[in-house]
């Protein structure tokens, strides 16, 4: 069973909650799908049993020995990546989308497409099971594909090790990597916080989740920072037919745990937050 933990925005405590779930009783697979800012490996220090290179698209490069320079390519590029000053064409690595068009139309065959090969996927073990995570190199796109790779690997590892539960720590936002994280997952846990932006982002996230046939639960984290807003979110959710399965109070213990490289469960299993997380987890697992 794949359980995706997501949030409309970053900083809601999503990863801390994923980490808590991952360290509860019973070995699990944890897959860090937040490939743009992978963090869980910092807490779990997994072994690297496998390292796989991920090709995140291509970038165009000019071979100036062959370039005449006619400047034709600059007229074709739709991403404003090629500039031509009459004497030299320059391709901006930042803007190039890697579409290959310039390399195809260049009459001198002077443009080569080079692979972006700095991104990685790792698979290994952590103290409560198996861990798979991806790290997208800065500036690279297509993180959705890397997320798919991470999930595939996580499923394979789960199968090989007879582990039933896979926790997907998702990326923030509502873009392509989020969609890749929840497509086909069994359950989605949406972590939000009681701020105005928290509510807005939650609404957008639920809009996405609804496009997929996936059972969704909401956790309001740091609920006591604004209990009126927490209640407002709870009401909005129940009117929309989405279940709020828990409100967690703000607890500096969560940060202290992180500083020590632990989840809140490992740091203080008897804390209020830990007890509530256990309750929440049981609800997630036992709701069909």
């Amino acid at each position: 069973m794949e359980i995706a933990v997501i949030s409309g925005k970053g900083g809601t405590g999503k990863s801390s909650i994923s980490a808590a779930f991952a360290t509860l009783n019973g070995r699990k697979v944890i897959a860090d799908c937040d490939v743009d800012a992978a963090n869980l490996y910092l807490l779990f220090n997994p072994t690297h049993e496998e390292e796989i290179i991920y090709i995140a698209g291509h970038k165009a490069h000019v071979n100036y020995e062959l370039c005449t320079p006619c400047g034709i390519c600059a007229n074709y590029c739709r991403f404003d990546a090629i500039s031509f000053n009459g004497a030299r064409v320059t391709i901006s690595e930042i803007s190039c989308d890697g579409c290959f068009l310039c390399s195809r139309i260049c009459p001198e065959n002077a443009i080569r497409m080079l692979q972006n090969d700095k991104s990685r996927m790792y698979s290994g073990s952590f103290r409560n099971g198996k861990m798979v995570y991806g790290r997208l190199a800065p500036g690279e796109e297509n993180s959705g594909k890397l997320v798919n790779m991470v999930r595939e690997k996580a499923k394979q590892v789960a199968g090989e090790n007879n582990l039933e539960i896979i926790i997907l720590d998702g990326p923030p936002g509502i873009g392509c990597p989020v969609i890749s994280t929840i497509t086909g997952a069994d359950k989605a846990v949406i972590v939000t916080e009681p701020t105005i932006s928290g509510l807005h982002d939650l609404q957008r996230t639920i809009e996405i989740v609804r496009k997929f046939d996936i059972k969704a639960f909401v956790i309001i984290n740091k609920c006591d920072l604004n209990s009126a807003m927490s209640d407002q979110i709870e009401t909005w959710c129940s009117n929309t037919g989405i279940k709020v399965i828990g409100q967690l109070p703000f607890d500096t213990g969560v940060v202290e745990a992180m500083v020590q490289g632990k989840s809140i469960i490992e740091y203080d299993i008897n804390s209020d937050v830990s007890r509530m997380i256990i309750e929440i987890w049981n609800k997630i697992i036992n709701t069909n």
Partner: peptide, 9 residues
């Protein structure tokens, strides 16, 4: 947020 394409752009 992040350091991928949207951030760099």
């Amino acid at each position: 947020p992040g350091t991928s394409c949207p951030f760099i752009q």
